[in-house]
Design a protein around this nucleic acid. Sequence first.
DNA 1: GTCTATATATCGATAGAC
DNA 2: GTCTATCGATATATAGAC
Lengths: 195, 195
Amino acid sequence: MTTSRAEPTDNEIRRVALDMFSAAGYDGTSVRAIAEGVGIKASSLYNHFSSKEAILWDMTASALAALYGQWRAAEAELSDPTPTERLAAFIRSQVSFHIDRYREAVIINAQLGRLSPDHFDRAVGLRKEYEDVLTRIVQSCVAAGGSVPDVRVTVFALLQMTTAIATWYQPDGPMSADAIVDHYIALALKLVAPA
Amino acid sequence: MTTSRAEPTDNEIRRVALDMFSAAGYDGTSVRAIAEGVGIKASSLYNHFSSKEAILWDMTASALAALYGQWRAAEAELSDPTPTERLAAFIRSQVSFHIDRYREAVIINAQLGRLSPDHFDRAVGLRKEYEDVLTRIVQSCVAAGGSVPDVRVTVFALLQMTTAIATWYQPDGPMSADAIVDHYIALALKLVAPA
DNA sequence: GTCTATATATCGATAGAC
DNA sequence: GTCTATCGATATATAGAC
């Protein structure tokens, strides 16, 4: 094909690389394997991305943007929420993302170290902003009468217990996505409950 | 050196490989790099381990044994504990391990996929046994009046939020190990508190 | 934008002298 | 148990024809 639209191949590379990076890891996936999955030769892949790391950075940046964007969209739909309602909405968004887009979640949480130093710093910065959002929510829950042993540790615990969902979730598993979301919201609310 | 004791070099290889595997990942660490860290040539390393994977399996098996053994030792010191005391003791052991031996914890939690299929299965089996211990403890907490949204999800959450400590803990960080342990025990007890 | 061919480097692992 | 030398495979990436 020598059509005028290059995007289809670009997106196919993204799709295949996401599957492989999330399943076998960045180091465990070769450029040749990605190309074979797309149906082209490895050399042709460099017409779409300048390097293997460029593919990883592309999907990392878009995944982080999607994670953050999903929360902002959910937040926009809240009308005068209480702190705990806000926490529940955040956990719902966070857990839903790690279920619906678990491949991208794996990239965000396990493959950042393979980015170039510059891209790594930017990714960590974006993730830090997201973490700060939850920190402020937990602080507001405490201000409203909630109790936590330590805000920082609680934020870490909330993020990590939900982040890890992406590593065990399987679409054909025994628990529905909605049930998982509800369970984690309940856990989060217990964590910040008054003493 | 051509001494009669081979063990010192064996242990040096284990030590160096543990540092490198936990920092750069199994795929990101070459046999040559390990050998250089030890102070020998790569070929000499094969006098101590039959393959690179054999090194990973050696440290994985010993780390899992240490994790489980630490809990059994802690359990042996409990005298007629209540379910929540038992949970607190488990979390204390789990968190302490992930702080004191965070390099081994990283191996257990992030590098299992690089083991041979046979070794992978055995490692997952051992980790499952450990998970079952916590499952029974949480069940006993529920039987004693505690409340959780779902036992399985709660067990996952408890393990994952503590497991992740190994990925951010730094010995020279702002929080003492004892403080971290106490915070996570408090979180765990809140998670299983009566409704 | 695709291909073949290749450059260059590194990988895990082995052979055999000492 | 150490070394030098090397095998054979594979890695990312590039050159240039079409």
